[in-house]
Design a protein around this nucleic acid. Sequence first.
DNA 1: CAATGCATGTAATGAGTTACATGATTCC
DNA 2: GGAATCATGTAACTCATTACATGCATTG
Lengths: 184, 184
Amino acid sequence: MNALGYALLGMLVRKPCSGYELTQLLEVFWQAKHSQIYPLLTKLEQEQFLSYEQVQQTGKPDKKIYSITEKGQALLQDWIAQAPAAPVIRDEFLVKVYAIWLTDVHTAKKLFEERISVYEEKVLFRETEIKKMKQEHGKDIEDITSRHFGRYILFQRKLNQEKDEIAWCRWVMSLLEKGAPTIG
Amino acid sequence: MNALGYALLGMLVRKPCSGYELTQLLEVFWQAKHSQIYPLLTKLEQEQFLSYEQVQQTGKPDKKIYSITEKGQALLQDWIAQAPAAPVIRDEFLVKVYAIWLTDVHTAKKLFEERISVYEEKVLFRETEIKKMKQEHGKDIEDITSRHFGRYILFQRKLNQEKDEIAWCRWVMSLLEKGAPTIG
DNA sequence: CAATGCATGTAATGAGTTACATGATTCC
DNA sequence: GGAATCATGTAACTCATTACATGCATTG
């Protein structure tokens, strides 16, 4: 089993989902394309960590709703208690930032402005999601025994990080201003 | 050319390095193993984006010191001006956190304590590196035209993030305490 | 005397992306 | 009429990790 497999189990232990839905929900901690998810779901089902139910829909294509089995839950529980591997971060923006001195101030500013606007959108999305959680589950989400606890604390973390990214970008922008004061 | 290729160019435009050194320096923004780096350096040299010089050493194995060519620098410059791809973050710890309600408070605490100690070490390392930069290059590093500017602002960002990770872990720990107050 | 650091490389395998493939519905 | 959303799947390819391979010097 690889980490993506556990990510799917972790997602499904909270609530049963279709592969399509999982692809979107996974965005928080493990980005993966549907072409990787669908075959893995099939494999996990064959190994009896998951089961599924075919659901007919009108106006929409049929879907498979996957649920975790007891065997799957036991496997996940064991894995959680083990020490996690080091995180992997691969961000082209950071590579560009490292060599930013090669470009002119204008190009540099554009790069950071674009980054800010991307992260501002992320903040809005994250805030809406957190509001939804609070409305649906109340103070329950701050209790470790709630199945929404993990999702809640992760979203809070993401929100912090996204806000900090914006703050950092603004700090860099201020350094850029210093170097090349605008004439006006 | 893939992003790792540009990451190598970006690293080498600051100063010439051996493949071994690059493997370590790349840690900030693009984790890669030497088995991926060495063949790619060979390829980039064949395509004349890099050149190298064989350096004999005593007591240590010989090494190849790679430098970026003008052709390589031009390629990198063009790439920087283009919009970066979305970042990829894959962190097993976050997967575990998402399903943390499955475990007992003790296991949960251990997971977060371990995370804190890993990040405390990172903070120390990062602070030392930043101090070094300031000593070596002074206020120069806050100027975009300095070749150390990118490295400096990236390290500041990393340091912020690592400190925030610790703060977030402590916040979660406080929620865990609330749920299961220690008797004593 | 075992482990770690320096230093470079290849081969096999696993993980992940892009492209190909289909099809109805809804929104602009 | 074109794009986006829902929904699942496979094939080809690229990217990344693990394992194999070597060898000397220093440190504990």
